[in-house]
Amino acid sequence: MAPESTPPILVEINNLTKSYRRGVQIIKVLENVCLNIPEGEFLALMGPSGSGKTTLLNLIAGIDQPDSGLLRIAGVDISLLSESELAVWRHRNVGFIFQFYNLVPVLTALENVELPLLLSELPRVRRRQQAELALKLVGIYDRKDHYPRQLSGGQQQRVAIARAIVSDPVIIAADEPTGDLDKVSAGEVLQLMTRLNQELGKTIIMVTHDPRAAERASRLQHLDKGVLNACTV
C-alpha cells in the first residue's frame, strides 16, 4: 500500500503580529502567531472573546493587514500586496461566510450569489449558470428569486455559502457561521460546510464559539490573548 502523500501547505503564517490603536493606547491583538494550514483542511479557531481569532481570520482573508510577520497564502505573501491588489486577490481566492449572513437586502438570492462573479470577465449567461449551480449545491435553488427578508436565517446562510463558493475560491473564511442560527439550522449549515470540505476539497477556516461546530473541523486551534502557540523557527 502506497504511503499517503501530505497535502501542500496552503496558508503559512510566521511571527504574525497585529495591534490596533485606540486613542493613545496600542492594543496588541496577535503576537508572534505561527500557523500552517494544509490545503483541504477544515480548521476551527476557538478562544474567548478578544482572543484575536477574528483578527487572525481577517488577516488570512486579506481584509486586514498585519503589522509584521509572514503571511503567505498559496505562495503569495499577501502582506506585501497593495490595497487594490489585495481586493483582486480576495475576489479570486477567498469566499466569506459571516455570522449575520451579510446578504445585500435589495438583491435576490440569485443576484447575491452572482455578486462576486461581477468582478470576473464571465459573460452574464455564464454568471447566471454558475450562480444557479451554487444555489443547487447548497439546496436552496427553489428560493433563487426570493429576497433575503423572505428567507429564514438558515436559508440566508445557505445563500451566503453559495456566494462564498460561487467563484471557486482557494479558502473559505467563516466567522461564526452558526452564531445566529437555531440548533437545526446550525446543524444543516455545518453539514453543508463539511460536505464542501470533504467532497469538494475546500480549505475552510472557521472562527467559532460553538464546541459542536468545532467538532466538525479536522483540526482545532485555540487562541488566548493573541497567542496561538510558540514559534519554533
Partner: peptide
Amino acid sequence: TVEIGTLRALGFSR
C-alpha cells in the same frame, strides 16, 4: 455600513 464592508470584502474596490 455592513453592506458596504461586505462588498469591499468580496473584492469590490473603493
